[in-house]
Design a protein around this nucleic acid. Sequence first.
DNA 1: CCAAAAGTGTTTCACTTACACCCATGA
DNA 2: TCATGGGTGTAAGTGAAACACTTTTGG
Lengths: 229, 229
Amino acid sequence: MSHTYEYPRPALTVDCVVFGLDEDDLKVLLIKRGVEPFAGRWALPGGFVRMDESLDEAARRELEEESGIRPAHLEQLYTFGAPGRDPRGRVVTVAYFALVKLTDHRPHAATDAREAAWFSVWDTPKLAFDHAEILGTALQRLKGKVRYQPIGFELLPPKFTLTQLQRLYEIVLERPLDKRNFRKKILAMDLLEELDEVEQDVSHRAARLYRFDHRKYKQLEKAGFNFEL
Amino acid sequence: MSHTYEYPRPALTVDCVVFGLDEDDLKVLLIKRGVEPFAGRWALPGGFVRMDESLDEAARRELEEESGIRPAHLEQLYTFGAPGRDPRGRVVTVAYFALVKLTDHRPHAATDAREAAWFSVWDTPKLAFDHAEILGTALQRLKGKVRYQPIGFELLPPKFTLTQLQRLYEIVLERPLDKRNFRKKILAMDLLEELDEVEQDVSHRAARLYRFDHRKYKQLEKAGFNFEL
DNA sequence: CCAAAAGTGTTTCACTTACACCCATGA
DNA sequence: TCATGGGTGTAAGTGAAACACTTTTGG
């Protein structure tokens, strides 16, 4: 039937909030806009959804095109559709939330002409559109989700120390954690594989390396286990 | 600039999953479709987003138009946009999740011509489009959220007994709860106002009525209190 | 007086929290 | 040998879970 075509349609885009962890700071990926509106302003990577691709595919495609990044974790965040949010007219955007290992995606020029860079989430430049609100929503989601889903590991290299892991949680949750209690709890879950390796090139006692066991987590999850920190 | 207008656009709709509690059963509101595609099938209430309204407004408007319902609680659920989900062409839908007091919205004919009815969420007819998937996602959200946000009260009449409240949680969570522990915990939160009234017309000892104190909750929430059951 | 649901406390156990010192390594 | 972070255990307190009988009311 033809109802589908009777009405004018909003434009539909996707935007991605990509988080990365840089030593002691949580970073977000931004792209410098080259054209109006908001030319010269920093914005979230994103773009128009094509007619033949799913929303997830659109998010991945845009992210790869604008930054070369293929995130380990990508999930839909929220859809923003206030009538005035884009000065060009009605544009609804499906926002995504992604986590990457910064070690794999060091600051580099985008594959197309645009400039891409990592910014501390606590100190971003003024953003285009309603992207500050989207970033805020993504941060909330990250803070909430990191505690009951083991997604934090996607921010770390495959092999990491317990101190790195603890720092990650302290940075995201914005509060200090007790070292002994943290280690006790995370090790008790039996989700970390203890490696026969230690970190390299430190000028003090080298810490043991661990790896997150995705396989074991999936098993435990099925059996009703709940990750919680 | 004109990028906005260079691409063909998907159509954009909203769909609402409206839950209600009927004695001992969780219900969802469905509308019988009058036209193709899926004419005669039951579907979630919803329709096209207009150019001058927000997504939330669209959801409320469609719900009111199709069923006369103005929900106490409405929140965005998830956006579904798989290319094949609507046989008419590319239609992306922003799904919403709503809770109503069934006592206020007894089964009745819709204001426009379509037939509307409440169905047990565990036993719905075959649904149009991908609405079964949307319903599943909404149920998951309800189950998850009811435990750490006091939204369950939106399903009950303003004055309710502790047994009613407990039944609500048992139905939504699909597991039995211990009466004494439940009462202890919920009362300890100090969010229920104990009324000087009891339920009427029961053929046994009448239970005391309580009311949820929204004001007090908002205060405690600001002070860092976390509802959790 | 019987049926039906309301209402009420205590104990046990598990988990969370707080807390401080010695160890290994490289400079 | 010093500076730096790595690594470890215990005690006290708090909250969750298990559990059964008496009370009230209407029929």
